[in-house]
Each structure stands twice: as C-alpha cells, then as structure tokens.
Amino acid sequence: MKRGTAGTLESNDAMIMVKESDGLKITITSIVYDFFHEQIENVIRETLKEEGLTNVEVICNDKGALDYTIKARLLTAISRMEEEK
C-alpha cells in the first residue's frame, strides 16, 4: 500500500501522512483541536478534492500550522505517495 509523509512536529508545522485506502478517512490531532479541527479538516478535504483523491486515509498531527502549511504538507505527502513504487 502506497504512502507518503511530510512535515515536522515543530511549532507552526504539521506532520501529515497519507496512504491509499478503500474510502476517505481523516484523523486529526492538534494542539488547537477544540478551536480549529473543523478548519483543518476543511483544508484537507478541499485539497483532496482539488487533487481528485477520494480513496485515501489522511493522518494529520498539527502543531499550530496555518492553512497554507496544512495544504503544503498534504500536497507533499500526496506527491511522495504517488512517487512511491
């Protein structure tokens, strides 16, 4: 099963892992979960939609990343997953 990971666990960053799956599954842990988990999930869903991905599992460990960082790390993880042989 192909997978890709990107990002770090440093402050203002996020570590995101994406792997092939039978359907769409998103798991988020965040230091600001109570306030921002919906926003983080929206960024992830929008990015997957833009990339045309429906059958993937995304695990996001957020350390206070802004939207652009979440999107960048997810795009990198997707790219790495797709490059995996």
């Binding site: 990107a6 652009y68 960082t69 999107k71 960048a72 790219s79």
Partner: peptide, 9 residues
C-alpha cells in the same frame, strides 16, 4: 520538494 511546495503555498 517539501520546501518548494511550502514557499509556493
């Protein structure tokens, strides 16, 4: 790869 995408975004 990660840095390129981060700067771009």
């Amino acid at each position: 790869d990660s840095a390129r995408i981060l700067i771009s975004q």
